[in-house]
Amino acid sequence: MPFELADFGGTFLTSAPVRDGDHVSPGINAYVQWFIPVGRRPMSLLLVHGGGGQGSDFIRTPDGRPGWVHSFLRAGYATYVIDRPGHGRSHWNNRALGPTAPAADYDALYSRFIEPEKERLWSDAVAHNRWPADPLAGDRFMAGQGPMADSLASSQRHVEAIAEQLFRMTGPTIIVSHSMGAPCGWALSALGGENVAAVVAAEPFGYPGMVHPLGVFDNGLVSTSYQGHHDPFARPIAVVTGEATWMREANARAAEFLRARAPVFEHIRLERHGITGNGHMLMSESNSDEIAGLMVRWLDLNIPS
């Protein structure tokens, strides 16, 4: 179904420049792109990408189909897509952001994201069959991978630094996060308070006590204290998990934590809704439209109009 845009564009959110002796460089910044449909809903929607990815992950799939942005626009949401600090169009600046983790390579990501059914590093991987058939899809996915912070705490602090400007732009919004973007989403929720109507965490990274080379989850679903003073979980929340991902146990532990805290909570296991064969990159796989449609229906049921 086509949609008509009233506006689209993008801008950088910035913080104070960093001074190092006589050298002045940009501070923490993020790029935000927006798409405003005609007849928009009063609530907007913010897409927060994961790990070494970028906001373009949500705009088109690696085989060229319309991405989740299109699905949310068709549903009437003004949609904002962030390149988190140091990702995508917000280039990495060591003076402001600190050091990076080692870059992920084909060996690391193909076995978990693209073709886990071949390596079978976990039992459910055998069910994976939703990566796009286009032979260039994997290369396009890898082309979008870049550096990320060398700690979860740093990633959280980076996004907290631009949160005030971000919420002035989005107004009341729904956060849809993916993977390592989930801790940033919880941090944004703690800062946004009533501005955040709901959170949908797709394949969220982390659970209480999880130990990872980039940090330990010592503060529930994040690794460090929140800069915000609002309860990040005091709103409807959904966790979305694929049938064939390695995240199933981790997502179940996160869901147990959230179920006791959110006023409305659902752990959406896609196969229980007839959506099968999905790995970790839900927005990139061949049935991405079905997944987005399920999210829209969940939001319609659980957020007051």
Rank of each mutant, 00 (worst) to 15 (best):
H70F: 03
F72Q: 07
V38G: 04
F58R: 00
D300V: 01
R130H: 05
G193N: 01
S44Q: 06
I268G: 00
G55D: 06
H91Q: 11
A149G: 12
S288H: 00
G86L: 01
A16Q: 13
R253D: 12
S286A: 14
V199H: 12
A149H: 09
D7H: 06
L121D: 10
S111T: 14
R74Q: 11
I275W: 00
V240H: 10
A153Q: 14
M283K: 02
Q227G: 09
S179E: 08
N29A: 04
T245K: 08
F8D: 01
F217G: 02
D105E: 14
L166K: 08
A250F: 11
N94A: 14
S71N: 11
G185P: 00
A103S: 13
V18G: 01
R261H: 02
P208R: 04
R60Y: 06
R112Q: 12
I36K: 08
E160G: 10
F233L: 05
F265M: 02
R269V: 11
V126I: 09
A260I: 06
P2K: 10
Y31R: 02
A6P: 02
D7P: 04
M43N: 13
E290R: 10
S225V: 00
A238P: 06
T79Y: 03
G50P: 08
N29F: 05
D218G: 09
P116I: 05
G138A: 11
V240D: 03
V81K: 08
F3R: 13
Y226S: 07
F113M: 14
G21Y: 11
F35C: 13
E243A: 06
Q156T: 12
L282P: 00
A260W: 13
T11I: 03
Y77M: 10
H87R: 08
S25I: 03
G181N: 04
I303Q: 10
G185K: 00
L45W: 09
G171I: 13
M180F: 01
T61N: 09
V69Y: 07
I303K: 09
